[in-house]
Protein backbone atom coordinates (compact mmCIF):
# COMPACT_ATOMS: atom_id res chain seq x y z
CA UNK A 1 0.00 0.00 0.00
CA UNK A 2 1.20 3.51 -0.80
CA UNK A 3 -0.01 6.35 1.38
CA UNK A 4 -0.24 9.80 -0.14
CA UNK A 5 1.37 12.16 2.39
CA UNK A 6 1.32 15.16 0.03
CA UNK A 7 0.06 15.25 -3.55
CA UNK A 8 1.68 18.42 -4.84
CA UNK A 9 -0.36 20.81 -7.02
CA UNK A 10 -2.16 18.03 -8.94
CA UNK A 11 -1.48 14.32 -9.08
CA UNK A 12 -3.52 11.50 -10.60
CA UNK A 13 -3.34 7.78 -11.27
CA UNK A 14 -2.72 7.19 -14.99
CA UNK A 15 -2.22 4.24 -17.31
CA UNK A 16 -2.58 4.32 -21.08
CA UNK A 17 -6.25 5.31 -20.96
CA UNK A 18 -9.50 4.02 -22.46
CA UNK A 19 -9.11 3.80 -26.22
CA UNK A 20 -12.10 2.65 -28.25
CA UNK A 21 -14.90 4.52 -26.49
CA UNK A 22 -14.70 7.84 -28.36
CA UNK A 23 -17.99 7.13 -30.16
CA UNK A 24 -19.69 6.88 -26.74
CA UNK A 25 -18.40 10.29 -25.66
CA UNK A 26 -15.58 8.90 -23.53
CA UNK A 27 -12.21 10.69 -23.70
CA UNK A 28 -9.20 8.41 -24.14
CA UNK A 29 -7.44 9.92 -21.11
CA UNK A 30 -4.26 8.16 -19.88
CA UNK A 31 -0.79 9.56 -19.22
CA UNK A 32 -0.38 12.95 -20.89
CA UNK A 33 3.27 12.04 -21.63
CA UNK A 34 2.70 8.36 -22.40
CA UNK A 35 6.32 7.52 -23.38
CA UNK A 36 7.49 8.64 -19.92
CA UNK A 37 4.96 6.39 -18.16
CA UNK A 38 5.90 3.48 -20.44
CA UNK A 39 9.57 3.99 -19.62
CA UNK A 40 8.92 4.13 -15.86
CA UNK A 41 7.00 0.87 -16.13
CA UNK A 42 9.74 -0.85 -18.14
CA UNK A 43 12.30 0.20 -15.56
CA UNK A 44 10.47 -1.70 -12.81
CA UNK A 45 9.58 -4.69 -14.98
CA UNK A 46 5.90 -3.79 -15.34
CA UNK A 47 3.88 -4.10 -18.52
CA UNK A 48 4.07 -0.66 -20.20
CA UNK A 49 0.37 -0.06 -19.60
CA UNK A 50 0.43 -0.52 -15.81
CA UNK A 51 -0.99 2.35 -13.78
CA UNK A 52 1.44 4.81 -12.22
CA UNK A 53 1.23 8.29 -10.75
CA UNK A 54 1.32 11.44 -12.88
CA UNK A 55 2.52 14.51 -10.99
CA UNK A 56 1.99 18.07 -12.14
CA UNK A 57 4.82 20.33 -10.95
CA UNK A 58 6.13 17.58 -8.64
CA UNK A 59 5.73 18.17 -4.94
CA UNK A 60 4.54 14.67 -4.06
CA UNK A 61 5.38 12.74 -0.89
CA UNK A 62 4.53 9.04 -0.65
CA UNK A 63 4.86 6.51 2.17
CA UNK A 64 5.35 2.78 1.47
CA UNK A 65 3.97 0.26 3.98
CA UNK A 66 5.64 -2.61 2.08
CA UNK A 67 8.92 -2.60 0.19
CA UNK A 68 8.66 -1.85 -3.52
CA UNK A 69 10.71 -1.11 -6.60
CA UNK A 70 10.03 2.37 -7.92
CA UNK A 71 11.15 4.41 -10.93
CA UNK A 72 10.64 8.09 -11.67
CA UNK A 73 10.63 9.52 -15.21
CA UNK A 74 9.36 12.53 -17.14
CA UNK A 75 9.99 16.09 -15.97
CA UNK A 76 13.28 15.81 -14.02
CA UNK A 77 12.96 16.65 -10.33
CA UNK A 78 14.88 15.97 -7.11
CA UNK A 79 14.08 12.47 -5.81
CA UNK A 80 14.60 11.88 -2.09
CA UNK A 81 14.39 8.42 -0.63
CA UNK A 82 13.83 8.34 3.12
CA UNK A 83 14.51 4.93 4.62
CA UNK A 84 13.96 3.80 8.22
CA UNK A 85 17.20 4.21 10.16
CA UNK A 86 18.78 1.40 12.19
CA UNK A 87 16.62 2.21 15.18
CA UNK A 88 17.12 -0.41 17.91
CA UNK A 89 14.83 -3.41 18.16
CA UNK A 90 12.82 -2.63 15.05
CA UNK A 91 11.26 -5.85 13.91
CA UNK A 92 11.23 -6.70 10.20
CA UNK A 93 8.20 -4.85 8.92
CA UNK A 94 5.08 -6.83 8.14
CA UNK A 95 3.43 -5.99 4.84
CA UNK A 96 0.69 -3.84 6.23
CA UNK A 97 0.10 -0.33 7.53
CA UNK A 98 2.30 0.48 10.50
CA UNK A 99 2.46 3.35 12.93
CA UNK A 100 4.12 6.37 11.36
CA UNK A 101 7.82 5.92 12.17
CA UNK A 102 8.28 9.69 12.18
CA UNK A 103 10.65 11.61 10.01
CA UNK A 104 13.38 11.68 12.69
CA UNK A 105 13.86 7.95 12.30
CA UNK A 106 14.24 8.17 8.53
CA UNK A 107 17.61 8.35 6.86
CA UNK A 108 17.71 10.55 3.82
CA UNK A 109 19.35 9.07 0.76
CA UNK A 110 19.18 10.29 -2.80
CA UNK A 111 17.69 8.41 -5.66
CA UNK A 112 17.76 9.37 -9.30
CA UNK A 113 15.49 9.82 -12.25
CA UNK A 114 15.12 7.08 -14.85
CA UNK A 115 16.59 4.32 -12.68
CA UNK A 116 14.79 1.71 -10.58
CA UNK A 117 15.39 1.93 -6.83
CA UNK A 118 14.20 -0.12 -3.87
CA UNK A 119 12.01 1.52 -1.25
CA UNK A 120 12.02 -0.56 1.93
CA UNK A 121 8.92 -1.03 4.06
CA UNK A 122 8.33 2.16 6.02
CA UNK A 123 10.30 4.17 3.47
CA UNK A 124 9.15 7.34 1.82
CA UNK A 125 9.71 8.96 -1.54
CA UNK A 126 9.67 12.71 -1.82
CA UNK A 127 9.69 14.42 -5.21
CA UNK A 128 10.64 18.08 -5.54
CA UNK A 129 9.74 20.67 -8.14
CA UNK A 130 10.88 19.79 -11.67
CA UNK A 131 13.77 21.78 -13.10
CA UNK A 132 12.28 21.50 -16.60
CA UNK A 133 9.01 20.20 -18.00
CA UNK A 134 5.75 19.81 -16.14
CA UNK A 135 4.74 16.18 -15.59
CA UNK A 136 6.73 13.59 -13.65
CA UNK A 137 5.78 9.89 -13.57
CA UNK A 138 6.27 7.39 -10.78
CA UNK A 139 5.87 3.69 -11.47
CA UNK A 140 5.81 1.01 -8.79
CA UNK A 141 6.56 -2.63 -9.53
CA UNK A 142 3.17 -4.34 -9.59
CA UNK A 143 1.39 -1.17 -10.67
CA UNK A 144 -1.10 1.01 -8.80
CA UNK A 145 -4.02 -1.37 -8.36
CA UNK A 146 -7.10 0.84 -7.99
CA UNK A 147 -10.30 -0.59 -9.57
CA UNK A 148 -10.41 -0.07 -13.34
CA UNK A 149 -13.28 1.76 -15.06
CA UNK A 150 -13.87 0.75 -18.70
CA UNK A 151 -10.58 -1.13 -18.64
CA UNK A 152 -8.48 1.76 -17.33
CA UNK A 153 -7.34 3.10 -13.96
CA UNK A 154 -6.80 6.62 -15.35
CA UNK A 155 -8.37 9.70 -13.85
CA UNK A 156 -10.20 11.50 -16.63
CA UNK A 157 -10.31 15.14 -15.59
CA UNK A 158 -12.92 16.03 -18.23
CA UNK A 159 -15.58 13.38 -17.65
CA UNK A 160 -14.75 12.40 -14.06
CA UNK A 161 -14.29 8.71 -14.91
CA UNK A 162 -11.68 6.83 -12.88
CA UNK A 163 -10.24 7.51 -9.44
CA UNK A 164 -10.33 10.94 -7.82
CA UNK A 165 -7.12 13.01 -7.97
CA UNK A 166 -4.68 12.15 -5.19
CA UNK A 167 -5.13 13.86 -1.83
CA UNK A 168 -3.26 13.49 1.47
CA UNK A 169 -4.33 10.38 3.38
CA UNK A 170 -5.32 8.44 0.29
CA UNK A 171 -4.14 4.81 0.22
CA UNK A 172 -3.17 3.31 -3.12
CA UNK A 173 -2.99 -0.49 -3.37
CA UNK A 174 -0.04 -1.99 -5.25
CA UNK A 175 -0.62 -4.98 -7.52
CA UNK A 176 1.18 -8.31 -7.22
CA UNK A 177 4.74 -8.40 -8.56
CA UNK A 178 5.51 -12.12 -8.21
CA UNK A 179 4.84 -13.07 -11.81
CA UNK A 180 6.52 -10.03 -13.35
CA UNK A 181 9.79 -10.42 -15.25
CA UNK A 182 13.02 -9.52 -13.47
CA UNK A 183 14.26 -5.97 -13.56
CA UNK A 184 17.04 -5.94 -16.14
CA UNK A 185 17.72 -2.25 -16.71
CA UNK A 186 19.96 -0.24 -14.36
CA UNK A 187 19.14 3.15 -15.77
CA UNK A 188 17.74 4.72 -18.91
CA UNK A 189 19.69 7.54 -20.56
CA UNK A 190 18.14 10.87 -19.62
CA UNK A 191 16.48 12.65 -22.52
CA UNK A 192 14.91 16.06 -22.86
CA UNK A 193 11.19 15.72 -22.13
CA UNK A 194 10.03 18.85 -23.87
CA UNK A 195 10.82 20.96 -26.89
CA UNK A 196 10.20 24.57 -27.83
CA UNK A 197 9.61 23.58 -31.45
CA UNK A 198 6.74 21.22 -32.21
CA UNK A 199 6.09 19.73 -35.63
CA UNK A 200 2.60 19.70 -37.10
CA UNK A 201 0.79 18.25 -40.08
CA UNK A 202 -1.74 20.66 -41.61
CA UNK A 203 -5.45 19.79 -41.53
CA UNK A 204 -7.96 18.35 -41.36
CA UNK A 205 -9.69 21.77 -41.47
CA UNK A 206 -6.92 24.12 -42.59
CA UNK A 207 -9.22 25.15 -45.46
CA UNK A 208 -11.43 26.95 -42.92
CA UNK A 209 -8.64 29.47 -42.35
CA UNK A 210 -7.21 32.41 -44.27
CA UNK A 211 -4.42 31.43 -46.71
CA UNK A 212 -1.71 32.77 -44.42
CA UNK A 213 -3.04 31.16 -41.23
CA UNK A 214 -0.81 28.06 -41.26
CA UNK A 215 2.19 30.32 -41.96
CA UNK A 216 1.10 32.56 -39.08
CA UNK A 217 0.86 29.51 -36.81
CA UNK A 218 4.40 28.52 -37.75
CA UNK A 219 5.75 32.08 -37.45
CA UNK A 220 4.91 32.06 -33.73
CA UNK A 221 5.89 32.24 -30.98
CA UNK A 222 2.95 31.18 -28.82
CA UNK A 223 2.91 31.43 -25.06
CA UNK A 224 1.43 28.67 -22.88
CA UNK A 225 -1.45 30.05 -20.85
CA UNK A 226 -2.10 29.47 -17.13
CA UNK A 227 -5.42 27.76 -17.77
CA UNK A 228 -3.79 24.79 -19.52
CA UNK A 229 -4.57 21.35 -18.10
CA UNK A 230 -4.85 17.69 -19.09
CA UNK A 231 -7.59 18.59 -21.60
CA UNK A 232 -5.43 20.97 -23.55
CA UNK A 233 -2.57 23.45 -23.75
CA UNK A 234 -4.09 26.87 -24.30
CA UNK A 235 -1.85 29.16 -26.32
CA UNK A 236 -1.64 32.90 -26.73
CA UNK A 237 -0.11 34.47 -29.81
CA UNK A 238 -1.01 35.55 -33.34
CA UNK A 239 -4.73 34.97 -33.88
CA UNK A 240 -5.47 32.48 -36.67
CA UNK A 241 -7.98 34.05 -38.98
CA UNK A 242 -10.90 32.06 -40.33
CA UNK A 243 -12.33 32.61 -43.80
CA UNK A 244 -15.31 30.30 -43.48
CA UNK A 245 -18.13 31.51 -41.32
CA UNK A 246 -20.81 29.41 -39.74
CA UNK A 247 -20.46 26.38 -37.55
CA UNK A 248 -18.53 23.24 -38.28
CA UNK A 249 -20.72 20.20 -37.63
CA UNK A 250 -19.36 18.38 -34.59
CA UNK A 251 -16.67 15.86 -35.61
CA UNK A 252 -14.19 13.46 -34.08
CA UNK A 253 -10.88 14.97 -33.00
CA UNK A 254 -7.55 13.40 -32.07
CA UNK A 255 -5.02 14.08 -29.34
CA UNK A 256 -2.51 16.62 -30.61
CA UNK A 257 -5.14 18.48 -32.63
CA UNK A 258 -4.78 22.28 -32.68
CA UNK A 259 -8.39 23.35 -32.35
CA UNK A 260 -9.12 27.02 -33.01
CA UNK A 261 -12.09 28.64 -31.26
CA UNK A 262 -13.56 31.88 -32.61
CA UNK A 263 -10.96 34.03 -30.79
CA UNK A 264 -8.29 32.52 -33.07
CA UNK A 265 -6.06 31.31 -30.20
CA UNK A 266 -5.22 27.61 -30.69
CA UNK A 267 -5.65 24.89 -28.08
CA UNK A 268 -3.48 21.76 -28.32
CA UNK A 269 -5.61 18.81 -27.25
CA UNK A 270 -4.01 16.49 -24.70
CA UNK A 271 -5.10 13.16 -23.17
CA UNK A 272 -8.45 14.25 -21.65
CA UNK A 273 -9.67 16.11 -24.76
CA UNK A 274 -13.35 15.74 -25.70
CA UNK A 275 -13.71 13.03 -28.36
CA UNK A 276 -15.73 15.34 -30.62
CA UNK A 277 -15.42 19.06 -31.22
CA UNK A 278 -17.17 21.82 -33.08
CA UNK A 279 -14.26 24.16 -33.82
CA UNK A 280 -12.02 23.62 -36.83
CA UNK A 281 -8.66 21.89 -36.37
CA UNK A 282 -5.96 23.73 -38.35
CA UNK A 283 -3.18 21.18 -37.77
CA UNK A 284 -2.23 18.13 -35.70
CA UNK A 285 1.03 17.54 -33.83
CA UNK A 286 3.23 14.67 -34.94
CA UNK A 287 2.88 11.70 -32.54
CA UNK A 288 6.46 12.22 -31.31
CA UNK A 289 5.74 15.82 -30.33
CA UNK A 290 2.44 15.20 -28.49
CA UNK A 291 4.17 14.09 -25.24
CA UNK A 292 6.53 17.06 -25.57
CA UNK A 293 3.54 19.40 -25.73
CA UNK A 294 2.25 17.76 -22.53
CA UNK A 295 5.46 18.85 -20.81
CA UNK A 296 5.05 22.58 -21.60
CA UNK A 297 4.60 24.81 -18.56
CA UNK A 298 2.46 27.91 -18.30
CA UNK A 299 4.61 30.82 -19.44
CA UNK A 300 6.74 28.71 -21.82
CA UNK A 301 6.92 29.86 -25.42
CA UNK A 302 6.63 27.41 -28.25
CA UNK A 303 6.91 27.46 -32.03
CA UNK A 304 5.34 25.19 -34.63
CA UNK A 305 6.98 23.83 -37.73
CA UNK A 306 5.44 22.00 -40.70
Amino acid sequence: MIEVLASGPYATVQDLGRPGYGHLGVPRSGAADAPSLRLANRLVGNPEGAAGIELTFGGCHLGFSAGAWVAVTGAPCPVELLVPGSAPRRLPGPAGPRPDPGAEHLRNTRAGMCAPFWVPAGGRVRLGTPTAGLRTYLAVRGGVDVPPVLGSRSTDSLSGLGPAPLAPGRLLPVGPALTLPQITVDAAPPRPVTSRVLRVLPGPRDDWFAPGATAALCAGPYEVSQDSNRVGVRLRGAALERVRGGELPSEGVVAGALQVPPDGQPIVFLADHPPTGGYPVIAVLTPADLPRAAQLRPGDTVRFRL
Binding site: G22, P249, S250, E251, V254, P275, T276
Partner: peptide, 16 residues
Protein backbone atom coordinates in the same frame (compact mmCIF):
# COMPACT_ATOMS: atom_id res chain seq x y z
CA UNK B 1 -8.02 0.76 -36.00
CA UNK B 2 -8.47 1.85 -32.36
CA UNK B 3 -11.27 4.44 -32.62
CA UNK B 4 -14.22 4.96 -34.96
CA UNK B 5 -16.06 8.19 -34.17
CA UNK B 6 -19.10 9.07 -36.30
CA UNK B 7 -20.28 12.66 -36.55
CA UNK B 8 -23.12 14.39 -38.43
CA UNK B 9 -21.08 14.62 -41.63
CA UNK B 10 -17.87 12.71 -40.94
CA UNK B 11 -16.37 9.54 -39.50
CA UNK B 12 -13.02 9.81 -37.73
CA UNK B 13 -10.91 6.66 -37.97
CA UNK B 14 -7.90 6.48 -35.64
CA UNK B 15 -5.42 3.80 -36.64
CA UNK B 16 -1.94 4.20 -35.16
Amino acid sequence: VTEIVPGPATVLVVAP
